[in-house]
Design a protein around this nucleic acid. Structure first.
Lengths: 153, 153
DNA sequence: GCTCGAAAGGTCAGGAAAGGTCAAAGTCGT
DNA sequence: ACGACTTTGACCTTTCCTGACCTTTCGAGC
Protein backbone atom coordinates (compact mmCIF):
# COMPACT_ATOMS: atom_id res chain seq x y z
CA UNK A 1 0.00 0.00 0.00
CA UNK A 2 2.59 2.50 -0.95
CA UNK A 3 1.33 4.59 -3.79
CA UNK A 4 -0.40 7.90 -3.97
CA UNK A 5 -3.67 6.55 -5.26
CA UNK A 6 -3.88 4.25 -2.25
CA UNK A 7 -3.27 7.10 0.16
CA UNK A 8 -5.92 9.23 -1.43
CA UNK A 9 -8.29 6.29 -1.41
CA UNK A 10 -7.85 5.62 2.26
CA UNK A 11 -8.10 9.28 3.12
CA UNK A 12 -11.45 9.49 1.37
CA UNK A 13 -12.67 6.31 3.00
CA UNK A 14 -11.74 7.67 6.38
CA UNK A 15 -13.72 10.80 5.65
CA UNK A 16 -16.65 8.70 4.54
CA UNK A 17 -16.68 6.70 7.72
CA UNK A 18 -16.95 9.76 9.85
CA UNK A 19 -19.51 11.34 7.61
CA UNK A 20 -23.18 11.58 8.27
CA UNK A 21 -25.29 9.68 5.79
CA UNK A 22 -22.32 8.03 4.17
CA UNK A 23 -21.72 10.99 1.92
CA UNK A 24 -18.96 13.53 1.50
CA UNK A 25 -18.52 16.52 -0.71
CA UNK A 26 -15.23 18.10 -1.62
CA UNK A 27 -13.28 19.98 -4.23
CA UNK A 28 -10.99 18.32 -6.67
CA UNK A 29 -8.46 21.13 -6.72
CA UNK A 30 -8.15 21.32 -2.96
CA UNK A 31 -7.70 17.61 -2.61
CA UNK A 32 -5.07 17.62 -5.33
CA UNK A 33 -3.20 20.40 -3.56
CA UNK A 34 -3.38 18.54 -0.31
CA UNK A 35 -1.69 15.53 -1.87
CA UNK A 36 0.53 17.65 -4.11
CA UNK A 37 -0.55 16.03 -7.32
CA UNK A 38 -2.29 17.02 -10.50
CA UNK A 39 -6.07 17.24 -10.31
CA UNK A 40 -6.57 14.46 -12.80
CA UNK A 41 -5.01 12.11 -10.30
CA UNK A 42 -8.17 12.55 -8.28
CA UNK A 43 -10.23 11.37 -11.23
CA UNK A 44 -7.98 8.38 -11.51
CA UNK A 45 -8.64 7.46 -7.91
CA UNK A 46 -12.34 7.97 -8.30
CA UNK A 47 -12.70 5.89 -11.42
CA UNK A 48 -10.54 3.04 -10.20
CA UNK A 49 -11.53 2.87 -6.52
CA UNK A 50 -14.96 4.36 -6.08
CA UNK A 51 -16.86 2.40 -8.65
CA UNK A 52 -20.42 1.11 -8.42
CA UNK A 53 -19.00 -2.40 -8.17
CA UNK A 54 -17.33 -1.44 -4.97
CA UNK A 55 -20.42 0.24 -3.71
CA UNK A 56 -19.90 3.92 -4.43
CA UNK A 57 -21.60 6.55 -6.51
CA UNK A 58 -19.79 9.72 -7.53
CA UNK A 59 -21.59 12.86 -8.62
CA UNK A 60 -19.83 16.01 -9.71
CA UNK A 61 -20.52 19.51 -10.80
CA UNK A 62 -18.24 21.82 -12.76
CA UNK A 63 -17.91 25.54 -12.80
CA UNK A 64 -17.96 27.99 -9.94
CA UNK A 65 -18.99 26.27 -6.77
CA UNK A 66 -18.24 22.96 -8.37
CA UNK A 67 -17.81 19.86 -6.21
CA UNK A 68 -17.29 16.17 -6.10
CA UNK A 69 -19.70 14.16 -4.03
CA UNK A 70 -19.05 10.57 -3.07
CA UNK A 71 -21.90 8.46 -1.79
CA UNK A 72 -21.39 5.12 -0.22
CA UNK A 73 -24.05 2.53 -0.86
CA UNK A 74 -24.64 0.07 1.89
CA UNK A 75 -25.67 -3.53 2.06
CA UNK A 76 -26.63 -3.06 5.64
CA UNK A 77 -30.02 -1.44 5.85
CA UNK A 78 -31.40 -3.78 3.28
CA UNK A 79 -34.39 -5.79 4.42
CA UNK A 80 -33.78 -8.46 1.90
CA UNK A 81 -30.11 -9.09 1.67
CA UNK A 82 -30.63 -12.28 -0.27
CA UNK A 83 -32.21 -10.61 -3.24
CA UNK A 84 -29.67 -7.83 -3.12
CA UNK A 85 -26.91 -10.40 -3.38
CA UNK A 86 -28.82 -12.08 -6.15
CA UNK A 87 -28.98 -8.90 -8.22
CA UNK A 88 -25.41 -7.86 -7.46
CA UNK A 89 -24.00 -11.15 -8.60
CA UNK A 90 -26.44 -12.21 -11.27
CA UNK A 91 -26.16 -15.32 -13.38
CA UNK A 92 -22.49 -14.97 -14.08
CA UNK A 93 -19.61 -12.91 -12.81
CA UNK A 94 -15.98 -12.29 -13.69
CA UNK A 95 -13.18 -12.88 -11.25
CA UNK A 96 -12.57 -9.16 -11.10
CA UNK A 97 -16.12 -8.33 -10.18
CA UNK A 98 -16.16 -11.11 -7.65
CA UNK A 99 -13.06 -9.60 -6.07
CA UNK A 100 -14.68 -6.18 -6.00
CA UNK A 101 -17.75 -7.54 -4.31
CA UNK A 102 -15.73 -9.37 -1.68
CA UNK A 103 -13.70 -6.26 -1.08
CA UNK A 104 -16.87 -4.29 -0.67
CA UNK A 105 -18.25 -6.75 1.86
CA UNK A 106 -15.00 -6.55 3.77
CA UNK A 107 -15.12 -2.78 3.63
CA UNK A 108 -18.53 -2.84 5.19
CA UNK A 109 -17.36 -5.09 7.96
CA UNK A 110 -19.60 -7.93 6.90
CA UNK A 111 -16.63 -10.18 6.12
CA UNK A 112 -13.17 -10.21 7.55
CA UNK A 113 -9.95 -10.61 5.62
CA UNK A 114 -9.79 -14.31 6.40
CA UNK A 115 -13.28 -15.02 5.14
CA UNK A 116 -12.57 -13.09 2.02
CA UNK A 117 -9.39 -15.03 1.33
CA UNK A 118 -11.14 -18.29 2.01
CA UNK A 119 -13.92 -17.55 -0.44
CA UNK A 120 -11.40 -16.41 -3.01
CA UNK A 121 -9.44 -19.61 -2.59
CA UNK A 122 -12.50 -21.77 -3.08
CA UNK A 123 -13.52 -19.81 -6.15
CA UNK A 124 -10.12 -20.31 -7.70
CA UNK A 125 -9.86 -23.94 -6.82
CA UNK A 126 -13.28 -24.94 -8.04
CA UNK A 127 -13.16 -22.84 -11.15
CA UNK A 128 -9.76 -23.44 -12.67
CA UNK A 129 -10.33 -26.91 -14.07
CA UNK A 130 -13.55 -25.86 -15.79
CA UNK A 131 -13.85 -24.98 -19.43
CA UNK A 132 -13.53 -21.17 -19.56
CA UNK A 133 -17.01 -20.70 -20.94
CA UNK A 134 -18.62 -22.16 -17.81
CA UNK A 135 -16.48 -20.40 -15.27
CA UNK A 136 -18.62 -17.28 -15.05
CA UNK A 137 -21.83 -19.06 -14.17
CA UNK A 138 -20.26 -21.53 -11.79
CA UNK A 139 -18.36 -18.72 -10.11
CA UNK A 140 -21.62 -16.84 -9.66
CA UNK A 141 -23.34 -19.84 -8.12
CA UNK A 142 -20.47 -20.52 -5.77
CA UNK A 143 -20.15 -16.92 -4.75
CA UNK A 144 -23.83 -16.57 -4.02
CA UNK A 145 -23.88 -19.78 -2.03
CA UNK A 146 -20.90 -18.85 0.09
CA UNK A 147 -21.85 -15.24 0.65
CA UNK A 148 -25.32 -16.21 1.70
CA UNK A 149 -23.92 -18.75 4.08
CA UNK A 150 -21.57 -16.22 5.58
CA UNK A 151 -24.08 -13.41 5.88
CA UNK A 152 -26.88 -15.55 7.16
CA UNK A 153 -27.98 -14.90 10.69
CA UNK B 1 15.65 -30.31 -1.07
CA UNK B 2 18.41 -28.43 -2.68
CA UNK B 3 16.88 -26.37 -5.37
CA UNK B 4 16.15 -22.72 -5.56
CA UNK B 5 12.38 -23.04 -5.64
CA UNK B 6 12.50 -24.95 -2.36
CA UNK B 7 14.64 -22.31 -0.72
CA UNK B 8 12.33 -19.55 -1.81
CA UNK B 9 9.36 -21.55 -0.64
CA UNK B 10 10.74 -22.09 2.81
CA UNK B 11 11.88 -18.49 3.08
CA UNK B 12 8.35 -17.33 2.35
CA UNK B 13 6.85 -19.81 4.76
CA UNK B 14 9.18 -18.63 7.47
CA UNK B 15 8.08 -15.07 6.83
CA UNK B 16 4.47 -16.16 6.98
CA UNK B 17 4.92 -17.84 10.32
CA UNK B 18 6.30 -14.73 11.90
CA UNK B 19 3.72 -12.50 10.26
CA UNK B 20 0.77 -11.03 12.02
CA UNK B 21 -2.51 -12.09 10.47
CA UNK B 22 -0.88 -14.82 8.43
CA UNK B 23 -0.22 -12.48 5.58
CA UNK B 24 2.86 -11.07 3.93
CA UNK B 25 3.36 -8.53 1.22
CA UNK B 26 6.47 -8.19 -0.87
CA UNK B 27 7.85 -7.21 -4.22
CA UNK B 28 8.63 -9.71 -6.89
CA UNK B 29 11.67 -7.87 -8.14
CA UNK B 30 13.21 -7.50 -4.69
CA UNK B 31 12.69 -11.13 -3.86
CA UNK B 32 14.21 -12.14 -7.17
CA UNK B 33 17.23 -9.95 -6.50
CA UNK B 34 17.60 -11.43 -3.07
CA UNK B 35 17.79 -14.92 -4.50
CA UNK B 36 19.67 -13.79 -7.58
CA UNK B 37 17.20 -15.25 -10.02
CA UNK B 38 14.90 -14.00 -12.72
CA UNK B 39 11.59 -12.57 -11.51
CA UNK B 40 9.56 -15.21 -13.24
CA UNK B 41 11.11 -17.78 -10.94
CA UNK B 42 9.02 -16.22 -8.20
CA UNK B 43 5.90 -16.91 -10.20
CA UNK B 44 6.97 -20.49 -10.55
CA UNK B 45 7.27 -20.86 -6.81
CA UNK B 46 3.92 -19.19 -6.25
CA UNK B 47 2.02 -21.28 -8.73
CA UNK B 48 3.53 -24.57 -7.66
CA UNK B 49 3.74 -24.07 -3.89
CA UNK B 50 1.22 -21.49 -2.78
CA UNK B 51 -1.95 -22.77 -4.35
CA UNK B 52 -5.48 -22.58 -2.96
CA UNK B 53 -5.34 -26.34 -2.57
CA UNK B 54 -2.54 -25.98 -0.12
CA UNK B 55 -4.33 -23.25 1.74
CA UNK B 56 -2.84 -20.12 0.28
CA UNK B 57 -4.23 -17.23 -1.66
CA UNK B 58 -1.99 -15.00 -3.68
CA UNK B 59 -3.12 -11.53 -4.68
CA UNK B 60 -0.98 -9.28 -6.81
CA UNK B 61 -0.95 -5.84 -8.24
CA UNK B 62 1.06 -4.57 -11.17
CA UNK B 63 2.31 -1.13 -11.94
CA UNK B 64 3.95 1.42 -9.70
CA UNK B 65 3.78 0.31 -6.11
CA UNK B 66 2.92 -3.19 -7.25
CA UNK B 67 3.15 -6.06 -4.82
CA UNK B 68 2.59 -9.71 -4.19
CA UNK B 69 0.54 -10.63 -1.17
CA UNK B 70 0.39 -14.15 0.17
CA UNK B 71 -2.38 -14.99 2.57
CA UNK B 72 -2.38 -18.18 4.52
CA UNK B 73 -5.86 -19.38 5.23
CA UNK B 74 -6.09 -19.50 8.95
CA UNK B 75 -9.12 -21.64 9.14
CA UNK B 76 -8.98 -24.28 6.57
CA UNK B 77 -10.60 -27.60 7.09
CA UNK B 78 -8.17 -29.94 8.75
CA UNK B 79 -6.21 -32.01 6.30
CA UNK B 80 -8.02 -35.28 6.70
CA UNK B 81 -11.39 -33.66 6.75
CA UNK B 82 -10.58 -31.79 3.56
CA UNK B 83 -9.54 -34.92 1.80
CA UNK B 84 -12.56 -36.70 3.18
CA UNK B 85 -14.75 -34.03 1.64
CA UNK B 86 -12.84 -34.32 -1.58
CA UNK B 87 -13.18 -38.07 -1.88
CA UNK B 88 -16.74 -38.25 -0.60
CA UNK B 89 -17.99 -35.66 -3.03
CA UNK B 90 -15.67 -36.00 -5.97
CA UNK B 91 -16.14 -34.24 -9.26
CA UNK B 92 -19.86 -34.76 -9.41
CA UNK B 93 -22.60 -35.93 -7.12
CA UNK B 94 -26.28 -36.72 -7.33
CA UNK B 95 -28.89 -35.00 -5.24
CA UNK B 96 -29.51 -38.23 -3.35
CA UNK B 97 -25.91 -38.66 -2.42
CA UNK B 98 -25.64 -35.02 -1.48
CA UNK B 99 -28.60 -35.42 0.82
CA UNK B 100 -27.23 -38.46 2.50
CA UNK B 101 -23.85 -36.86 2.99
CA UNK B 102 -25.50 -33.87 4.63
CA UNK B 103 -27.50 -36.13 6.86
CA UNK B 104 -24.42 -37.99 7.84
CA UNK B 105 -22.65 -34.77 8.75
CA UNK B 106 -25.64 -33.78 10.82
CA UNK B 107 -25.60 -37.13 12.57
CA UNK B 108 -21.97 -36.68 13.40
CA UNK B 109 -22.83 -33.36 14.96
CA UNK B 110 -20.76 -31.39 12.49
CA UNK B 111 -23.78 -29.58 11.07
CA UNK B 112 -27.01 -28.60 12.69
CA UNK B 113 -30.44 -29.01 11.18
CA UNK B 114 -30.54 -25.39 10.03
CA UNK B 115 -27.23 -25.59 8.24
CA UNK B 116 -28.26 -28.73 6.50
CA UNK B 117 -31.55 -27.31 5.31
CA UNK B 118 -29.86 -24.15 4.14
CA UNK B 119 -27.27 -25.99 2.11
CA UNK B 120 -29.90 -28.23 0.63
CA UNK B 121 -32.00 -25.25 -0.39
CA UNK B 122 -29.08 -23.50 -2.04
CA UNK B 123 -28.15 -26.65 -3.93
CA UNK B 124 -31.62 -26.95 -5.33
CA UNK B 125 -31.99 -23.34 -6.19
CA UNK B 126 -28.66 -22.93 -7.93
CA UNK B 127 -28.95 -26.17 -9.74
CA UNK B 128 -32.46 -26.23 -11.11
CA UNK B 129 -32.06 -23.88 -14.05
CA UNK B 130 -28.95 -25.66 -15.30
CA UNK B 131 -28.90 -28.08 -18.13
CA UNK B 132 -29.23 -31.52 -16.50
CA UNK B 133 -25.85 -32.68 -17.73
CA UNK B 134 -24.05 -30.02 -15.72
CA UNK B 135 -25.98 -30.36 -12.52
CA UNK B 136 -23.82 -33.07 -11.06
CA UNK B 137 -20.55 -31.17 -11.32
CA UNK B 138 -21.95 -27.85 -10.24
CA UNK B 139 -23.69 -29.50 -7.32
CA UNK B 140 -20.39 -31.06 -6.31
CA UNK B 141 -18.57 -27.72 -6.43
CA UNK B 142 -21.27 -25.98 -4.45
CA UNK B 143 -21.47 -28.70 -1.87
CA UNK B 144 -17.71 -28.76 -1.37
CA UNK B 145 -17.56 -24.99 -1.07
CA UNK B 146 -20.32 -24.77 1.49
CA UNK B 147 -19.28 -27.74 3.55
CA UNK B 148 -15.75 -26.42 3.73
CA UNK B 149 -17.03 -23.08 4.91
CA UNK B 150 -19.14 -24.72 7.56
CA UNK B 151 -16.48 -27.13 8.77
CA UNK B 152 -13.55 -24.76 8.80
CA UNK B 153 -11.82 -24.20 12.06
C1' DG C 1 -31.38 38.54 -21.51
C1' DC C 2 -26.53 38.15 -23.56
C1' DT C 3 -21.74 37.79 -23.60
C1' DC C 4 -17.63 36.82 -21.79
C1' DG C 5 -14.24 35.48 -18.63
C1' DA C 6 -13.00 32.97 -14.55
C1' DA C 7 -13.46 28.90 -11.97
C1' DA C 8 -14.52 24.69 -11.50
C1' DG C 9 -14.21 19.66 -13.20
C1' DG C 10 -13.30 16.05 -17.45
C1' DT C 11 -10.61 13.45 -21.02
C1' DC C 12 -7.00 11.33 -23.09
C1' DA C 13 -2.55 9.74 -24.41
C1' DG C 14 2.07 8.68 -23.06
C1' DG C 15 5.90 7.11 -20.20
C1' DA C 16 7.55 4.53 -16.32
C1' DA C 17 7.14 0.95 -13.03
C1' DA C 18 5.48 -2.91 -11.55
C1' DG C 19 4.05 -7.97 -12.31
C1' DG C 20 2.54 -12.04 -15.94
C1' DT C 21 3.14 -15.54 -19.64
C1' DC C 22 5.12 -19.03 -22.21
C1' DA C 23 8.21 -21.91 -24.39
C1' DA C 24 12.87 -23.45 -24.69
C1' DA C 25 16.78 -25.12 -22.24
C1' DG C 26 18.68 -27.30 -18.21
C1' DT C 27 18.78 -30.77 -14.29
C1' DC C 28 18.06 -34.84 -11.79
C1' DG C 29 16.41 -39.24 -10.34
C1' DT C 30 15.31 -43.91 -12.08
C1' DA D 1 17.47 -42.34 -22.08
C1' DC D 2 13.12 -40.71 -20.31
C1' DG D 3 10.03 -37.87 -17.76
C1' DA D 4 9.11 -34.62 -14.36
C1' DC D 5 10.52 -30.68 -12.35
C1' DT D 6 13.28 -26.32 -12.52
C1' DT D 7 15.27 -22.18 -14.45
C1' DT D 8 15.80 -18.61 -17.75
C1' DG D 9 14.78 -14.84 -20.97
C1' DA D 10 12.12 -12.50 -24.42
C1' DC D 11 8.00 -10.29 -24.78
C1' DC D 12 3.20 -8.77 -22.82
C1' DT D 13 -0.32 -6.51 -19.76
C1' DT D 14 -1.72 -3.70 -16.02
C1' DT D 15 -1.42 0.19 -13.01
C1' DC D 16 0.04 4.68 -11.81
C1' DC D 17 0.93 9.47 -12.60
C1' DT D 18 1.37 13.65 -15.27
C1' DG D 19 0.40 17.38 -18.48
C1' DA D 20 -1.86 19.40 -22.35
C1' DC D 21 -6.18 20.51 -23.81
C1' DC D 22 -11.57 20.43 -23.40
C1' DT D 23 -16.31 21.35 -21.32
C1' DT D 24 -19.50 23.15 -17.99
C1' DT D 25 -21.22 26.54 -14.76
C1' DC D 26 -21.62 30.96 -12.59
C1' DG D 27 -21.83 35.76 -12.30
C1' DA D 28 -20.54 40.57 -13.61
C1' DG D 29 -21.37 44.06 -16.85
C1' DC D 30 -23.63 45.42 -20.58
Amino acid sequence: MGNLADYIESYLKRLLENAEQGMIELQRRELAEMFRCVPSQINYVLTTRFTPDRGYVVETRRGGGGYIRIVRLSFRPSQDRASLIETEIGDEITERRADSLLLRLEDEGLLDEGDRAFVKAVLERETERLHPSYRGTVRASLLKAMVMLLLRE
